[in-house]
Nucleic acid binder design. Structure first.
Length: 110
DNA sequence: GGGCTGACTGACG
DNA sequence: ACGTCAGCCAGCC
């Protein structure tokens, strides 16, 4: 039975595993989910499912907030990240070198 | 069941 | 170095 959890479930799980004060990219989440090429879908997952995970900690490869947030302006995510202790540039750019979380090599034993 | 969509990424000019 | 194009994969209609 392949994966008991659908890809989107994995994504949500991984996103909720992002440590406080850290950010990650769609590519990393997709890779951890088992789909290094499914970066696009990661966003689609969060878009379709109600945001229960810290989606605001997920940004694109350039550390830029791609999240359209539809009903809410990017400004919202910027504020959320700042509340996490992450410094966000006025252009919604984040320093992935400082806050970028790529699994920290942990990945548990899984 | 087939086709379109999407909060991306990487390659090419 | 920056801008543009195409590919990718699974969910949803």
């Amino acid at each position: 039975m392949k994966s008991e959890l659908h890809f989107k479930d994995k994504v949500l799980s991984i996103v909720s595993k992002i440590p406080y004060g850290r950010v990650t990219t769609y590519g990393s989440v997709a890779t951890l989910a088992g789909l290094p090429r499914g970066a696009r879908f990661v966003g689609g997952v969060l878009h379709f499912n109600e945001v229960k995970a810290p989606w605001h900690r997920v940004v694109n490869r350039h550390g830029f907030i791609s999240t359209k947030c539809i009903d809410h302006p990017k400004k919202l995510q910027k504020v959320l990240l700042e509340q996490e202790g992450i410094e966000v540039s006025s252009d919604f750019m984040i320093d992935l070198k400082k806050y970028g979380w790529f699994g920290e090599k942990s990945l548990d034993n899984s």
